[in-house]
Each structure stands twice: as structure tokens, then as C-alpha cells.
């Protein structure tokens, strides 16, 4: 792998671009997960309110 990347420096650039976009994608994934949790909490609350009203 090291020899391959030394022979073809363009792939080092590709690796660096990938690291950045994977990092940003992981951040977005964590925000998405937290938002989903908030959404499900809110749905639960709405359901509870609905049950009380019934």
C-alpha cells in the first residue's frame, strides 16, 4: 500500500479528500442520529398527550 501510494501520488490526494469528506459525513450522521432521537421523543410526547385526551 505504502509503495503504491509513493508510486502514484495522486492517490495520496484522493486519500486526503476522502478523510475530509468521511469526517464531515460522520459529523452529519451523528447530528442525524440525535435529530432522530428528538423526533421520536416528540412523537412519544404527542402520543401520550393524545392518550390523555382520550
Amino acid at each position: 500500500m505504502y509503495n503504491f501510494l509513493t508510486l502514484y501520488p495522486s492517490y495520496v490526494v484522493l486519500a486526503i479528500v476522502l478523510i475530509i469528506w468521511v469526517g464531515i459525513a460522520l459529523f452529519l450522521k451523528s447530528v442525524d442520529k440525535k435529530l432522530s432521537k428528538i423526533e421520536s421523543d416528540l412523537e412519544l410526547k404527542v402520543e401520550k398527550k393524545g392518550n390523555k385526551n382520550e
Binding site: 509513493t6 495520496v12 486526503i16 478523510i19 469526517g23
Partner: peptide
């Protein structure tokens, strides 16, 4: 928090570049 993510990315990308 986002600044820290970018600082980590700067460090990691720099490390990969440094290796070569």
C-alpha cells in the same frame, strides 16, 4: 465543536501528507 472536528481533520490530513 465543529472547529475541533476541522482541527482533527487538519491533523489527520497533515499526518498522511507527512508520511509521503
Amino acid at each position: 465543536f465543529i472547529g475541533l472536528i476541522f482541527a482533527i481533520l487538519a491533523t489527520v490530513t497533515g499526518m498522511v501528507w507527512a508520511k509521503f
